[in-house]
Each structure stands twice: as structure tokens, then as C-alpha cells.
Nucleic acid binder design. Structure first.
Lengths: 224, 224
DNA sequence: ACCTGAACACCGTTCAAGT
DNA sequence: ACCTGAACACCGTTCAAGT
């Protein structure tokens, strides 16, 4: 299905896609070079012709996971009915919220997706597509580049942290059925989404407030 | 110095403190059970009498790192001179900012401190001292428990993400002196602090704005 | 261009047994 | 109460050599 079934010779793309399948089916701890090699019917050493090391492979996966999340505007029906505005005319706070939600969806689409992207981002590897998309959304609000970048970084940290936590909890729940009578309940699915929206609203709201302040010229004290 | 030099018999506390020293001196990747055992002049298997597994050990370290950050109000002279208010009379936004800064300081006090705490938190292990302190600070602003909790979680995610990134960059800089003429510059130290403050301000500002809105009764639409 | 074979230098964890 | 000895079942990575 990946394009190479048993023809024995692989491309970098084959390797990455097979890795992505192992990740999604068995999780990050089970995504080892040796397991990946076995899935490709190849010796572990063969992988090092395609990728210099494991981190580089993971960075590639991270980029694919994030990139696969474009074109999904929000998947959230709460944006309101009949707004009928052009895609460019959307108010920037909504664009920022939509971009954050799309990123969350992208991360949730693969098991341990958030952790893969977070660790890659922490190591400074990978294209920074997520960061750039968020920064562009912020910049559409008229903020200068540094402010947009910092807001994007703050949002990204929150999103990665939140979804990592969320995914950790998902596989924890799926294993131990919890001995504590109360159970983990699927209510938490919507609870997680609400908590996510709340965090995003806090950051976007903070940015809106910052815009209001500079517009009314009440910058209490300029920072040294 | 840890209390046990070569008396050969160790306590759980000995083990944790020695682990903390290895962490700080050599970093998280070098903190292996085998290395820790060697530092204690003990067989690796001996560690499993004190801790059931490595994650539990790391959770213990995380708790110690966070706990060691209490009593350090802010370490930031920018809070303004001569306020002379009692410790309890501080405005809640300042308290939240101070708590966030103290947490950052605590994490920065140990090499890879943020990653240790973040992974422990993600796994749902450890006391949640950091989370609780932040939630208490938020609650002192008059917000209900759920709002305070969610604000604390958002802040915590941001802080852990930011400081992880910051620490990763620190050890990256200390190794590769960077071939790119521009260099990594110590300016980034203050840049990191400013970016941190900005992120915290965004979240705290968002919370203030939320307070303002509910006070003026303009909750556009109540969420379903 | 892509892979094998074999090795190097490691891991975390278990468990019977010792003192 | 605290540890040894020995093993189990793994890791990521390198490198000469093959086709």
C-alpha cells in the first residue's frame, strides 16, 4: 500500500510512510529502527542509507504530520452559521483560532503525533511549518514580526503541550480500564476540546487586549 | 556529600539526590540506571529496591526540582520599586506572573529540568505542585475552580514548552560553537526571558480580559 | 543506488539468592 | 532492609563489503 510491497528496494518516502504506519499502529516507543527495518524486510543498517539517524527520521515524520493538517479549516461547527465571508476576510482572531484547531486536528490524526512534533521542534529540527502558519495568522492582525512570532511560539507551546497530554491520556485510558469506579469517561473528550479552546482563547484574547491597549495609547510603561 | 560516601548502604533519598547530580552534570540522556548504579557503587538491580522503575525515579526528581523553586518570589527586578505591599496583598496578575517566573527559575536550576518535569507531567505522575500553585494564584483573582485550573494548565504548558526549548538551545549552543558567522550570542539569554514574559503576559492578559468581560456582562453568547 | 553481515557499545528490568 | 550475580530481551549506529 505504501507503493513497495516486496520489491525489496526502497525510497526515502517508503521508509517514512512505513514509519508513520508503525507510529500510528503501535506508538512512538515501539517505533524502533529495528522494527522499522523488519517491516520493510530489510536489515537495520539499510535505514542509514536513507536517513543519517533516527532523529532526522522523526523530524521528517513531524513535518508530514503537520503538513497533512492543511486544508482542514476548523472541523468545529461552533464558528457560527451563515457568516458567508470570503476566506481572506475572516477576522484575525478567528483565523488564529482556526489555525490552532487545525494544528490540533493534525496532531491528533496520528498516535503520539504531538510528542513527535514537540520533540522535533524542541531540537530545532524540521521545517517550522506550524510556527510559520501561526505567525502568519497573527501577523494578519497587524502586529509586527517579533510580536507575531512570539505569539505564535506561545500558541505552539500550548498546543503541543495540551495535545501531548491529551494523547498520553488517551492511550493510558485504553490500556488500564481504571480501577477507580468513576472511570475515565468519554465526556473527557469534549472536556479536552473545551480546555483546548479555553487556552487558545486566553492567548488570542491576550493578543486582542494588546492590540486594544496600543490603539488607546495606554502602554503603562515602556519596557527597558 | 549526599550523606553517603562509601558506607555502601543507601536510602531512597540518596539515590534521588545522586540522580539529580548526574542529571545536572551530564544531562538527561546520560542519566541511565546503570550509570546511576555505578555512581552509587552498586549493581543496577539494586536501584529497583528503591524505585519500581525509571519513570518513578524521574517523577521523584521532577517533584524535587519544582519544590526547590519555592520561596524565590520572582528574581526579576522589573516588578517596580517601593511597592511595599504585604505578600498577600499583591494583585493576582502579578502573583501569577511571579509564580510563572519562579517555576521557570526552578526548571532552569537543573540541566534538562523542564524536560524531566514535562514528561512526568505528561504521564500523569508526580505531585502536581506546579499546577496547584498556578491554579491557586489564578483562583486568587476570583475565578471559579474550573477556570483557574484551565488557566493554570495553559500557563504550565507554555512554561514547560518554553523552558524545554530554552534549555535545548543552551546545550546546543555550548556544544557546536556554530559555523554561521552570526553566532548564537548571549543576547538570546535576555531574548528568551523577554519571550517568556511575553507569553505569560498574553495568558495573564487573556485572563484579565475574561474578568473584565464578565464584569461588564458582555458574554457575547454562552457556550453550549 | 541500495542493501547485507557482523559487530560495538550500550539500554531497562527481573529474579533467585545472599547478608 | 538492602544488595549481588547473572541473565533476558532489547536498543541505535558503524562500516566493510556486496550487487
Amino acid at each position: 500500500m505504501t507503493g513497495n510491497e516486496s520489491g525489496r528496494r526502497h525510497t526515502r518516502d517508503d521508509v517514512a510512510e512505513t514509519a508513520l504506519r508503525i507510529l500510528d499502529d503501535y506508538g512512538l516507543p515501539d517505533l524502533t529502527m529495528r522494527r522499522l527495518a523488519a517491516a520493510l524486510d530489510v536489515q537495520p543498517s539499510a535505514l542509514y542509507w536513507h536517513f543519517p539517524n533516527k532523529q532526522t527520521l522523526l523530524a521528517d515524520l513531524a513535518d508530514r504530520i503537520v503538513a497533512r493538517g492543511v486544508g482542514v479549516p476548523s472541523a468545529d461547527p461552533a464558528t457560527g452559521p451563515g457568516l458567508a465571508t470570503g476566506p481572506d476576510a475572516t477576522a484575525w482572531p478567528d483565523r488564529l483560532r482556526a489555525e490552532s484547531a487545525a494544528l490540533r486536528d493534525a496532531l491528533l490524526a496520528y498516535r503520539d503525533g504531538a510528542e513527535v512534533v514537540a520533540s522535533t521542534y524542541a531540537l530545532g529540527l524540521g521545517d517550522s511549518a506550524a510556527q510559520h502558519r501561526l505567525a502568519a495568522a497573527a501577523a494578519s492582525g497587524g502586529f509586527d514580526a517579533e510580536t507575531s512570532d512570539r505569539a505564535a511560539t506561545a500558541l505552539l507551546h500550548f498546543v503541543l503541550g495540551h495535545v501531548s497530554h491529551e494523547q498520553q491520556r488517551m492511550q493510558f485510558d485504553s490500556i488500564g480500564v481504571l480501577a477507580t469506579g468513576e472511570a475515565a469517561d468519554p465526556l473527557d473528550v469534549s472536556g479536552s476540546a473545551a480546555a483546548f479552546a479555553f487556552g487558545v482563547d486566553l492567548l488570542v484574547g491576550g493578543l486582542e487586549r494588546l492590540g486594544d491597549q496600543s490603539r488607546s495609547g495606554s502602554l503603562s510603561r515602556s519596557r527597558t
